[in-house]
Design a binder for these strands. Structure first.
Lengths: 368, 368
DNA sequence: GTCGGTACCTAAACCGGTATAGTTTGTCTA
DNA sequence: TAGACAAACTATACCGGTTTAGGTACCGAC
């Protein structure tokens, strides 16, 4: 037999140095493959796989078996196009990464969303933008290509323009907390009020009379609502409610606010912070200026963090179940997308966890 | 003509009470609408919109104008199906939400990814699972339906089974850090070594001779590498390198490890922690047991957090630029997906930031 | 005058599902 | 024994893009 000239004779070709040593790609099966293998039409396979009537029991099991042995998995891409659905939810976080990093809320919240989404085969598309002005674009990007079926709106603001935007984009949504505008979107909310009130009355019970609040931005609804609850609690007790300082939720700004409060001629004996990172930073400022917490100054946080329980003194804080929020929001949104008319959900109110950073005030009021 | 009995005659049906008061939905335009409006074929519109040759300049501009006035936006769903691409990247985070919450790394990392992704129109699909065993499922879900074109692998472990898994799933990937197995995936890495070495020699320069390390899980590569660097630095200085305690990265476990170290007969005068939350918890333990930091004990953290700079004393730490990591990883992965052959990227090594929690050790060594 | 080539454009297939109209088969009824 | 009707199944259109195979028209060249 003549040597084959097309492939030069010689030593057996050494295995060519593939970057990936995979010779043949499995080429994952489509519904057409299943149909051919089962000897039925494509449409019938679709029926069988979606548990719809009009398929004889025998045929149905045969189709399912073939699909299983072939390892068939539905293509979300095809299904998306065909059903005009994305099978995904969107979450846009519009905060400076530095702030989010310090805030234990989002990771737990996202974990809660995932817990609900995973079993349904849906996915979470996350978009994180630094500035609020880029937020519009983020939502537009998500919806324009049809990437998501709905979004979860966090960090609601006063007169939040996103409500209008989402509405105009014809998208489903749920809000975290009740917006201050009429909204056609269901809301998942926790009443911050009881937690703040608990914190304030805890401090009053201990004997504090000058209590300050280091709050979040008033432009954010939960920020302003915590401040409102704080003021209301103090007024009801007949105390001065004017010691409220607004911050941007960062540890740095929390430290600044604390310095300001401690520099007053009649400084407060207790400070209620709107989140844990600020409380921890405030604790640092107090200690730095020679005060002993809680002997000279009591401190409470919000949104219980892991570290708060381990610092010295450990932080009295108001805990919220971020995971439960996430799960509830995802569940509600999925149902809304499914066409159900859904109602708002009220979750259990935030609760105070008393630890070491709060105690009776000094007997002689400071600087008086 | 006999009255139609199928639809009973009667007053005109009143407008049904819509929940949304939007009468007509805009029905966003497709490429076919553009084609009809511009008087050309669908295919030509596709050519014009994708800057491909074969379209006369006049026609091209006309098509683009029509597309603009109609407000046409490409459907990612259709494009996905047609091009067999998802136009999305996946990130699976397999840690307990509590740990992630305390760790400032991920938010910044994700922000970095977004910064690269947003301009390209791609999206980030996030999956967060609590247990490692659910991880496989998470990756499978992402890839099966074709939701992502590639994934970013964080928290590499020893003999990480995911490398094999991703490979078998025929997916693109980048790893954060070099895996300990041969891998066909490009890696983005920061050498933790210099940061740890800087921290150790900083402490040695201050006069410390008994230095301990509270490290991450040895099963995680960056955990064990930090520990290795720590040991090597000490050995090179001729010091005891045996004081290494393994933790799970949580503040609670950091506190436990610190207690253990401080309870020793000859306790260390300095502790190098593998992350900031553990360092802060460790600081709490030290203070609780009556030690003054940094006079009696020096402490360093890792992965500089926002709060670390505001506690008292402020935390000496090793900073890593998580945002830069994220951006680099996303960029690399996009290029790999595009078919380019890409090389590993080495980022600037982590650097020590000296603050207040490190100082000269006490003159009389403790408990001796 | 026609041949070849290029520039511009159309028609139609394709991606992998779902939805719907229509066909076959069998059974029950009149 | 035809007609009605339901069950089981097939064929095909459709979602909205991309891609490829053709098809004109116009050009210069021989």
């Amino acid at each position: 037999m003549a040597p084959d000239v097309t492939t030069p004779a010689g030593p057996p070709t050494p295995a060519k140095p593939l970057r990936s040593a995979k010779p043949l790609k499995p080429a994952k099966p489509t519904i057409t493959d299943v149909a051919r293998e089962a000897g039925v039409s494509k449409g019938l396979v679709s029926f069988a796989l979606n548990d719809r009537p009009g398929v004889s029991p025998d045929t149905r099991t045969r189709i399912l078996e073939v699909a299983a042995t072939l390892g068939w998995k539905p293509s979300i891409r095809a299904r998306s196009l065909s059903e005009s659905k994305a099978f995904a939810l969107g979450l846009v976080i519009a905060r400076d990464p530095g702030i989010i990093a310090a805030d234990p809320f989002f990771p737990a919240f996202i974990a809660g969303i995932e817990r609900v989404l995973a079993p349904t085969g849906q996915a979470l598309v996350l978009s994180m933008v630094a500035e609020e002005k880029a937020e519009d674009q983020a939502y537009r990007r998500l919806v324009e290509g049809g990437r998501v079926d709905g979004v979860i709106l966090t960090d609601l603001r006063r007169d939040d323009p996103r409500l209008e935007l989402i509405d105009s984009l014809d998208l489903h949504a749920v809000t975290l907390g009740h917006p201050d505008l009429p909204s056609r979107f269901p809301a998942v909310s926790i009443d911050d009020g009881p937690g703040i009130r608990e914190a304030v009355s805890h401090l009053i019970d201990l004997g504090h009379r000058r209590i300050a609040h280091v709050g979040g931005p008033r432009s954010m609804l939960h920020g302003s609502r915590r401040a409102d609850s704080f003021r209301a609690s103090l007024r009801e007790a007949g105390l001065d409610d004017s010691l409220v300082i607004e911050t941007d939720f960062t540890a740095a700004d929390g430290a600044r606010a604390t310095s300001e409060l401690l520099g007053m001629s009649r400084r407060p004996t207790a400070i209620v912070f709107a989140n844990d990172p600020m409380a921890i930073a405030g604790l640092g400022v107090a200690q730095r200026s020679g005060l002993v917490v809680p002997d000279d100054l009591s401190i409470t946080g919000f949104d219980g963090s892991d570290v708060g329980g381990h610092i010295h003194p450990s932080l009295t804080t108001v805990t919220t179940e971020a995971q439960v929020w996430g799960a509830a929001a995802a569940e509600l949104l999925l149902r809304a997308i499914d066409g159900e008319t859904v109602d708002d959900i009220e979750l259990d109110p935030a609760r105070l966890v008393i630890r070491e950073s709060s105690a009776t005030p000094p007997i002689t009021p400071p600087a008086e």
